[in-house]
Nucleic acid binder design. Structure first.
Lengths: 147, 147
DNA sequence: TTACCTGCAAAGAGTTTGCAGGTAG
DNA sequence: CTACCTGCAAACTCTTTGCAGGTAA
């Protein structure tokens, strides 16, 4: 039975439950909260785990333990619901936009901005490594203020 | 006075001293050892600080403290004698090849392989961010075994 | 009921910092 | 001599792990 009483809200919930199950996780209250924070958004969300912890602390009454946050995020990453973008020694972001795309990085603020695939001409790699195949090509465009 | 008794060796030493001074560091025995390990090589060297610590422990009799290793590597990076390539949450490499170039990354072994600039067609970014200028474009080509 | 999950706290890894004695300039 | 450097250890941050009680199926 599917409950439509709350319309879109309940619908998303069942999407989240499916996301969790397909990642090998039981849907629990805590994990559904995490789903809501990550995926119930219009725009792409770039976050570090530390960011996520802060948001959870601020937005949710109930505490969610570190262990739960880490295992949920990592399972989503393994399943492909989150992408990891490592920017430097200090910052590694997760990206809720899992489509094939690239990024601008503001080197002063460490802010990441999505670049649509169409915004970058096709990358052609002329060198081949014997016995290896290319699985992805990631472009990071570093930017700073113009003045 | 420049001593040529040991030929190339002494010559490199003066290069290292200059590298250190221009990075704002005094040339000390410990730092010259680090220079020798980093820059006295034919091929590009990709390393994490942990790697470097292990190499130092193995190859050098005298202990070099963590503080010295960190401040030397960071000063070289700030000065531009080392480039940082962040690969994922676990690994961030320093690269002694500071020229404009890209990398292959073997996603199973985390091994980095240099890609000459000529091996990648010019990257054209069609999107412009107002008030921002591009400082660099970095391409990471992820690869894995073929079979 | 069983397997998995949660929160907590402890343990680990990597990095930074503070300090007292030592060294380059 | 002075400022900087070294080695050491403590502190910090981020992440992982172990455990006892709790919850989904």
């Amino acid at each position: 039975m599917v409950c439509y009483k709350f319309g879109k809200k309940m619908n998303n919930n069942s999407i989240f439950i499916e996301k969790l199950r397909s990642s090998g996780l039981r849907p629990t209250k805590q994990r559904l909260e995490i789903c809501r924070l990550l995926f119930d958004r219009k725009k792409t969300f770039h976050f570090t785990i530390t960011d996520l912890c802060k948001i959870i602390k601020k937005e949710i009454n109930k505490k969610i333990s570190l262990a739960t946050i880490y295992n949920t995020v990592h399972s989503f990453k393994k399943k492909g619901y989150l992408k990891e973008i490592s920017v430097n020694r200090e910052k590694s972001y997760f990206d809720t936009n899992t489509s094939d795309h690239h990024h601008f990085l503001d080197i002063k603020t460490n802010e990441l901005i999505d670049l649509k695939k169409e915004d970058v001409d096709k990358i052609n790699i002329k060198k081949n490594l014997p016995g290896k195949k290319i699985t992805s090509i990631e472009v990071l465009v570093k930017i700073e203020n113009n003045n």
